[in-house]
Amino acid sequence: FSITQFVRNLGLEHLMDIFEREQITLRVLVEMGHKELKEIGINAYGHREKLIKGVERLI
């Protein structure tokens, strides 16, 4: 299971460039909250919320 699959499953594949540029893996994403996601350029609250909720389902 990769970050690419995870992001695609959430319908947020347009954010993949950010994850690749910042070298974010699923392991790193698990540790990130709204503040960190915003810092790397994910400005939409809804997108950040989707990512965080998606990660919570993985754990």
Rank of each mutant, 00 (worst) to 15 (best):
F1N: 10
F1L: 15
F1V: 13
F1K: 06
F1S: 11
S2F: 07
S2R: 07
S2Y: 08
S2C: 13
S2H: 08
S2M: 08
S2A: 09
S2N: 14
I3P: 02
T4V: 14
T4H: 14
T4E: 15
T4M: 11
T4K: 12
Q5H: 12
Q5M: 11
Q5W: 09
Q5D: 14
F6L: 11
F6T: 02
F6R: 00
F6H: 01
V7R: 00
V7F: 06
V7Y: 03
V7L: 15
V7T: 08
R8F: 09
R8N: 09
R8G: 09
R8C: 10
R8M: 12
N9C: 14
N9T: 12
N9W: 12
N9S: 15
N9K: 12
N9H: 13
N9Y: 12
L10Q: 05
L10W: 03
L10R: 01
L10M: 08
G11Q: 08
G11N: 08
L12V: 04
L12E: 01
L12W: 01
L12R: 01
L12Y: 02
E13A: 13
E13N: 09
H14I: 14
H14W: 07
H14C: 12
H14E: 14
H14N: 09
H14D: 12
L15G: 02
L15V: 06
L15P: 00
L15S: 00
L15Q: 02
L15Y: 10
L15I: 09
M16A: 11
M16C: 09
M16Y: 06
M16H: 06
M16P: 00
D17H: 15
D17C: 10
D17K: 12
I18Y: 05
I18G: 01
I18R: 05
I18E: 01
I18L: 09
I18K: 05
F19L: 07
F19H: 00
F19A: 01
F19W: 01
F19K: 00
F19N: 01
E20H: 10
E20V: 13
E20C: 09
R21F: 06
R21Y: 05
R21P: 05
R21T: 07
R21V: 06
R21I: 06
R21E: 06
E22F: 07
E22Q: 13
E22L: 05
Q23D: 09
Q23Y: 07
Q23P: 05
Q23G: 14
I24A: 02
T25D: 09
T25C: 06
T25H: 05
T25Q: 06
T25Y: 03
T25M: 03
T25P: 06
L26Q: 02
R27G: 12
R27F: 08
R27W: 11
R27M: 10
V28R: 15
V28P: 02
V28G: 12
V28N: 13
V28M: 15
V28A: 12
V28D: 15
L29T: 04
L29V: 04
L29E: 00
L29S: 02
L29G: 03
V30E: 08
V30D: 02
V30H: 09
V30Q: 12
V30I: 14
E31Q: 15
E31H: 15
E31F: 13
E31R: 15
E31W: 10
E31S: 15
M32Y: 08
M32A: 05
M32W: 06
M32F: 07
M32Q: 01
G33A: 04
G33D: 07
G33Y: 03
G33T: 07
G33C: 05
G33R: 07
H34Y: 04
H34A: 03
H34L: 04
H34T: 02
K35E: 11
K35D: 09
K35W: 06
K35G: 06
K35F: 07
K35N: 11
K35P: 09
E36M: 03
E36T: 03
E36R: 05
E36W: 03
E36C: 04
E36D: 08
L37T: 01
L37N: 01
L37S: 00
K38V: 07
K38P: 02
K38H: 08
K38C: 09
K38A: 10
K38F: 09
E39S: 12
E39C: 08
E39W: 06
E39L: 10
E39M: 10
I40S: 04
I40V: 09
I40P: 01
I40R: 04
I40Q: 03
I40H: 04
I40D: 01
G41P: 01
G41T: 03
G41A: 04
G41M: 04
I42V: 12
I42C: 03
I42D: 01
I42W: 01
N43K: 14
N43L: 15
N43H: 14
A44K: 14
A44W: 10
A44P: 07
Y45I: 10
Y45Q: 10
Y45D: 05
Y45M: 08
Y45C: 07
Y45S: 06
G46D: 15
G46R: 14
G46N: 13
H47F: 07
H47T: 15
H47I: 15
R48T: 03
R48N: 01
R48C: 07
R48E: 01
R48K: 01
R48L: 07
R48A: 05
R48S: 05
E49K: 11
E49Y: 10
E49C: 10
E49S: 09
E49A: 11
E49H: 10
K50L: 13
K50W: 07
K50Q: 12
K50A: 14
K50C: 10
L51E: 00
L51V: 08
L51P: 01
I52T: 02
I52V: 06
I52L: 14
I52Q: 02
I52W: 03
I52S: 01
I52E: 00
I52R: 05
K53A: 10
K53M: 09
K53S: 09
K53G: 06
K53E: 09
G54W: 07
G54K: 04
G54L: 06
G54T: 06
V55S: 08
V55R: 05
V55A: 13
V55H: 03
V55F: 10
E56C: 11
E56K: 15
E56N: 10
E56M: 12
E56Q: 15
E56H: 12
E56T: 10
E56F: 08
R57T: 11
L58G: 02
L58Q: 05
L58E: 06
I59N: 10
I59C: 14
I59M: 14
I59A: 09
I59K: 11
I59Q: 11
